[in-house]
Structures are given as C-alpha cells and as structure tokens.
Design a protein around this nucleic acid. Structure first.
Length: 270
DNA sequence: TCCTATGTTGTATG
DNA sequence: ACATACAACATAGG
C-alpha cells in the first residue's frame, strides 16, 4: 500500500505516543522484518525509553528514542502503523508493539516485506541520512532529473520513476499518476524524452507529491482518504475504467515488472 | 489451481 | 564497472 503520502499518514498514527515512556516491548524475534537489525537489542534499548519524535522521508519512517536511539520502519507492501488501547493483545502479524501506559503502538505487516532498523548513536545512521533529497526540496531540480534520465537512457520511464535514489517516495500508483498528468507514455525510454517532457515530468512529480501529501498524508481521518475522481488513481483498477481527462478507455499492462495503467488517448508512444 | 497485490534486493546478463 | 531485467521474498484474497 504505502508510498510517500501513505507513509506519512501512518507515521502520524503513532503521534499519541510521542513524549511518553515505552513500558514494554513485544516483538516476533524471528520475523523477517528484523533481517537487518537485532531484535534483542531493539527490545532491550526501547524498554523504559522515551519515544521522542518522528519524521518520514521517502517510504521510510524514523522514530527518535531517548538515549540516542534511532528506530526506522519501512512498511514494505502491506505494512501499517496503528494505535491500540492499553491492554492490547498482539496478533499474528504484529511484528513490533511498543506498550505504553495509555496505549500500544503497533507495527503490523502480513506479507513481511517491511523492515525494522535500529541504531544507537549521537548522529543519524546511514540508512536514514543516505535517503535521496525529497522531490519537494530545492535539490530536486530539472537538471538533476535530466542527468538521471540520461544515465538510465535505455530503461522505460515508468521503471525509472520507481528508482528511489532519484524519486524518493514515488511508488507504482504515483508513477502512473505522474506520467498520465505529464502526458508521457510509460514505455518511452528515459533517454528519449525531450527537454519539454522532462520539465513536465519534473513539474508533475512535484504536483502529485504535494497534493498526495495534503490529501492523504495530512488527513485527520481514521483511514486515509482517496484522491478525487479527477485523478487517474480512482480509475486505474476498474475494468473498463475511463481517463478522467479524455473519457477514453484506460489500458493496463506490465511495464518494468509492475502493473501500469495509462491513457492511450493522451500518452503516445511515438 | 492460478493469478494478483501502492516494494526492494540479489543475481544473471549484456 | 555499469545498466537492465527479472525472480524471489511471504501471505491473503479473488
């Protein structure tokens, strides 16, 4: 599920726990989500610590914990964060539960493509500071995009948009949304885009990220809302779905190993 | 039974 | 060394 905006939505679900002590920690020690970290160390360090703050970058979340603890969570394909009332009994797919006096903070992920990372130290660990600059930052320039597309010249633009080292936080649905708005066919080779198309791609990447963060990421609702029907998002999965801009039939096909939806009426190959 | 799934990574190939 | 393509990871639901 989670891309840029959904990750930020889930991050905020743990807000009620910020500034509060972690009384106990529950985790599945041999869960796949701890592949790159030591669950025993995590449990030992978090127990009795204070949950200080949180932030999101790309598809990662970072939770600062007292005594220089850095807790990172990646939601993978099916990960979620939730708050449960005090006394919550962990369930089968709950991999990490921070038990506090007033609530439990739960990370669950049934497919286990998610990851928990943990480091101790005065400065941010590499797995956090190495994340590429946000697409909404000043560092995400048209020039930087152009250079990257040239280096990936022979790959379809759809696949290139999914590369986190230049498009952090962009996932399958956002990539399709961006290409649809920029009127670029997903199969076009990255190196074949004109200067004007690169400019559109850059602009629409920022537009989609900005609006997704405002609609989904900033939602105060229980579950995150879908974007409006004017977005491709709302039509990409329905059979016989129509392009909200042209009314023409949408098409779905696997490109770059991922199901891709586009509107042939406005996204031409040539 | 077979296919799909809003993600990443290791490995083979060019 | 570098870029690209694709299987694999694990599970549920149609």
């Amino acid at each position: 599920m989670p891309e840029l905006a959904e990750v930020d939505f889930f991050r905020k679900r743990w807000n009620p726990g910020l500034g509060h002590k972690i009384e106990r920690v529950f985790l599945h020690e041999n869960s796949g989500v701890f592949k790159t970290s030591d669950p025993k160390l995590i449990a030992r360090h978090l127990t009795g610590a204070m949950l200080l703050s949180s932030e999101a970058a790309a598809k990662q979340m970072l939770f600062r914990v007292s005594s220089d603890g850095w807790l990172g969570i990646h939601l993978g394909m099916t990960g979620e964060l939730a708050v449960q009332p005090a006394g919550y009994a962990p369930r089968k797919h709950d991999h990490l539960v921070l038990v506090q006096k007033k609530q439990s903070l739960v990370f669950s992920d049934f497919r286990m493509f998610g990851r928990v990372q943990f480091s101790v130290g005065p400065t941010a660990p590499d797995w956090w500071s190495d994340i590429a600059p946000p697409v909404l930052s000043k560092l995400f320039t048209i020039g930087a995009v152009a250079v990257f597309l040239l280096r990936r010249a022979r790959a379809p633009i759809k696949a290139v948009l999914l590369m986190q080292e230049r498009f952090p936080g962009i996932g399958n649905w956002m990539a399709d949304e961006i290409l649809w708005r920029a009127a670029i066919h997903p199969k076009r080779l990255a190196g074949s885009l004109t200067a004007g198309e690169i400019e559109s791609l850059h602009r629409e990447t920022r537009w989609v990220a900005d609006h997704a963060l405002r609609i989904i990421g900033a939602a105060k609702t229980d579950t995150f809302p879908d974007p409006p029907k004017t977005w491709l998002f709302r039509h990409r999965w329905e059979n016989g779905g129509k392009c909200p801009k042209t009314g023409a039939l949408l098409v779905r096909e696997t490109i770059g190993g991922r199901t891709t939806c586009w509107s042939p009426a406005r996204q031409k190959l040539r």
